[in-house]
Design a protein around this nucleic acid. Structure first.
Lengths: 220, 220, 220, 220
DNA sequence: GATGAATGAGGGTTCATTCAT
DNA sequence: TATGAATGAACCCTCATTCAT
């Protein structure tokens, strides 16, 4: 924090783009190792309380090495979010575009959420965004631009098509696509805070949610 | 740092009992001023990054004064959460118990949420709990015990009655009362992260949500 | 410490000299209570680490009350030393002046040391002087002027008379009266540091010491 | 504050093992510089009042550097004592074990005391132990175990042999070896408190002491 | 006189960042 | 490139001292 220079805007060092050295063989990529360690530390303690020292230790590198790949702590955090969230969205858009009955598509999306997000460290990144976003406008903006707005658009498309086919009654959802994903968010938050008191069956939760939206599913 | 147990339980100094000074008239209570300032600072920067110095400045007291009312930074945080959340829950339970059609009760609850939480600083406290809860097991536990479990119970009761009267189709909701409040959570998170990109009409969101649950509302 | 005004030179407030109030009846003297509490706290934790808050608590007065009797922490410390050490010395000089065989006089002095110093809180004050003296030139000077130099003079007189009568062999002691009291100091230091590992029988130690100086004592 | 147990045991950082920098030539070791500075500051102001800031300044390092070598202020203090006292004792035991007339051995020991302790900063450490020992049980214990008990044992051996050979009259000393070293302690305390009022000729003091114990020394 | 809430300078400790090797 | 010792700005917390009541 404080008055350190703060170049922020995370510059990927040349060497990483055109990567050289005996990498590609078996040497674990330094940058990846650091990002992975950072995810652990940041989601375990929050951005401010996480120590780069611990990140370095966990990544198996020296503290100074982090600065070869990231200009500062904040940039490391931002790159972490980008690197985890970035790849996610394309897959999601693809899922949402297939032209099948909405319920089916929704189920696929839910499946993907459970498998690819809730079941992985990615949910921790989303939790991080929720927790730290207010302090990191750039992160929030990135997330809005790269994820939220596209998810919203994709879901809207899906729902409009469904509405046209009469698969869903109202246009409520099309106006507030957030309602479709709300339970996913709840699940992530619940998981972080209350799972040890009362574990949540996400899959069941999401199914119940779809039942509410699309009407009881006829198992037949 | 981290979340050491540390019973804490912040002691209200004697002075509040036998209070001196021109308090009793209308002078803002020191303790309240500090809590208010703490809410601002904590929700603005997060627990770890917030400076007690700033809390003091904002509260118009000296740094040391904070320690007359709270044993340490963590206790201040915990007391803040307790003092804001505590009073909330009773009102909520009362709302949920009235014996009226579920839709009506739900609407009242939604109204209360919008007015008493979303429209006040309380939403910031909830955001804080979401953000810091994983690092503060005591906070998470308190919140689970005092809020979540009671809300869940109250909502379950409400929904069961509604289901018995045939007002809502499924028992999905009774199994996952989280689904009822999910949009509230989404609204709070959205408000903190994305409102400046795309403001959210919470009232409309919540209404749409109720429409989905109870079927389109007949405006008549 | 630091840059506080520091009037030091402990001014006994007028009220204490010409003491008023229902004192003399049975009301415990405030000043004495504070000094007693200060002795406990200072000898328990050292000057710097002792807290006036604790002194006040132990004395049963409010923190501010201390400042009615002593200008600051340092003056309290100095007055403490003076009030405990002052009365001691006259008694000692009287003991040393009686015209009896040196061995007898020495035995009386030793007795007095054991009873009046080693056996009371006064030994703690001496320990305090040893510990804090280097930081409190005034204390050291007071102690040297009021105690050491007078003890040394008295002991010298005693020894010279004894030497003249042939009771002690050498003039070594007269040159270094410190040698006479050295075991007393050792006892005090030992008591503070090592008594829990190996308790010291002071009386026996002092007797052995006298035996060395005056030759074996014929019990007959 | 106070004297919490706290295993401490200050860790020598790796750098000392595989040392870099032009050390190995003659550059003063960081750790040593800090210890030396700490000795100055601690013995000048006492443990509690000494400021690590000043220690750092005096050692020519940054404040944070201290924490690379010592976990905290207390450990620095303890290590200081250990590092100064540790090496002392072996030499002393060796001196006490030679099989020569007791008077000669005693004179050697006294010489060693004057040269190696009284004439060096080591006397300041002993003063520190006396002053702070009551607050630092571990220090007192260490000192008792590593120094006192061994000195006592060595002196006892020495005296027993002397008694057997009839060199000293009584067994008083063997029961209270403290009597042999008492003047050394007095000298150290005197030096710290009263030397500016009345300097002490330690060598003469110690010689006079030996004369008392072993009988006048025949100059022939 | 007595009180104790309030003050704020100060000090121990942490940790992001730098840089000589 | 990689290292990790060194730096020093901050920040939490303490406590001597003040002063309104």
């Amino acid at each position: 924090m404080a008055a350190r220079p703060k170049a922020s805007r995370s510059v990927r060092p040349a060497k990483t783009r055109g990567r050289r050295r005996r990498n590609g063989a078996g040497a674990p990529d330094r940058r990846e190792a650091i990002l992975a360690a950072a995810l652990d530390e940041f989601s375990g303690r929050g951005f401010a309380a996480a120590r780069l020292d611990d990140v370095a230790k966990r990544a198996g590198v020296a503290k100074g090495t982090i600065y070869l790949y990231f200009p500062d702590k904040e940039a490391l955090f931002q790159d972490l979010v980008r690197s985890v969230i970035g790849p996610l969205i394309e897959r999601f858009e693809a899922s949402a575009e297939v032209d099948l009955p909405a319920r089916l598509v929704a189920e696929r999306i839910v499946d993907m959420f459970v498998r690819e997000i809730y079941g992985t460290r990615r949910k921790d990144v989303i939790r991080l965004i929720i927790a730290e976003g207010p302090r990191f406008p750039e992160i929030a903006e990135f997330y809005y631009r790269e994820v939220i707005s596209r998810v919203v658009a994709a879901v809207r498309g899906l729902l409009r098509r469904a509405a046209e086919r009469g698969e869903i009654p109202a246009e409520a959802l099309a106006r507030f696509p957030q309602l479709l994903v709300a339970p996913g968010l709840v699940a992530i938050v619940w998981n972080g805070l209350f799972d040890r008191f009362e574990p949540l069956d996400v899959a069941a939760l999401m199914r119940a949610h779809l039942d509410l939206l699309f009407g009881e599913r006829r198992p037949g």
